[in-house]
């Protein structure tokens, strides 16, 4: 496997609340022989501000991101929505070589594994019934999987990585790619709708016998986990990096 120089971007909420997801991502990339560096002065990609309409206030954060990440072959992050934000919405910055490079080389973890490293058998054992939550920006923005609205060949990069795990059962859902209702600050400015959408998503997984909900975005899972814990449900959430890192490589 070719060795790349990777800048690891750990989004703010993962850094603060879910360090185990960052650790799993780092360990997995290292096991795959990559040279991973974590630029210590990184903060956030600016998405929460911009999605709330305050793109202008996010510019300084964008610049900080570019400063920290301009010197790598690839920037890899365990978050579909952050990767999408950098690629799609850093168009408001002046398109210097550094900005262009950062936008082109930022990858969500799963697509980095399947598209750049071209691995799909990570020799995992995960004997559980798993429901894949397709987070919207990963799905429709990064095209990590085919979207149910489009008439196209069906595929899923997440499933491709999970499928070969020993003992795993990937569960079919009633609504394969409906939004969980997190939506950044949508979750606090439309709290009732956001919670209802989350509850409906969880019911779908429960109804179909899922034990573990996984996704390429911890933000969706944070929202779902918040509801699961409040309602004292059995079902669990686990970021896909944690599953992929539980291997015997």
């Amino acid at each position: 496997m070719k060795k790349h120089k990777i800048g690891l971007f750990i989004p703010c909420y993962i850094d603060l609340f879910y360090p185990q997801v960052g650790i799993a991502t780092l360990e997995l990339l290292e096991k795959l022989g990559q040279e991973v560096e974590y630029p210590a002065k990184q903060t956030c990609c600016g998405q929460p501000l911009a999605n709330s309409g305050s793109e202008k206030e996010a510019i300084a954060t964008y610049r900080n991101f570019v400063r920290n990440f301009q010197d790598f072959d690839y920037i890899v992050t365990p978050s579909g929505s952050c990767a999408y934000h950098v690629r799609r919405h850093y168009d408001v910055l002046e398109q210097t070589d550094a900005v262009k490079k950062v936008r082109e080389t930022t990858y969500e973890l799963c697509e980095f594994l399947t598209d750049i490293l071209q691995v799909d058998d990570l020799q995992i054992r995960f004997p559980h019934k798993v429901g894949v939550h397709n987070s919207c920006h990963g799905l429709r923005g990064l095209k990590l999987a085919s979207a149910s609205e489009l008439v196209e060949q069906r595929y899923s990069k997440l499933r491709r990585l999970l499928e070969k795990a020993e003992g795993i059962e990937i569960v079919e859902l009633d609504r394969n790619d409906e939004c969980c209702g997190f939506g950044g600050t949508f979750s606090v400015f439309e709290p009732d709708l956001s919670a209802k959408m989350g509850k409906d998503r969880i019911s779908d997984h429960e109804r179909n016998g899922v034990e573990v909900i996984t996704a390429a975005d911890m933000s969706c899972l944070m929202h779902l986990e918040g509801i699961i814990r409040r309602q004292k449900k059995q079902i669990q959430v686990k970021h896909i990096a944690e599953i992929l890192n539980s291997n015997s490589l």
Binding site: I14, D15, L16, F17, R230
Partner: peptide
């Protein structure tokens, strides 16, 4: 806390990723 009306906040582990990495 509009988040907390129907959801728990995430739990905060002792070390952030940044601290762990440091």
């Amino acid at each position: 806390n509009a988040w907390g009306r129907e959801r728990e906040l995430p739990s905060a582990p002792k070390l952030s990723f940044k601290q762990w990495h440091g």
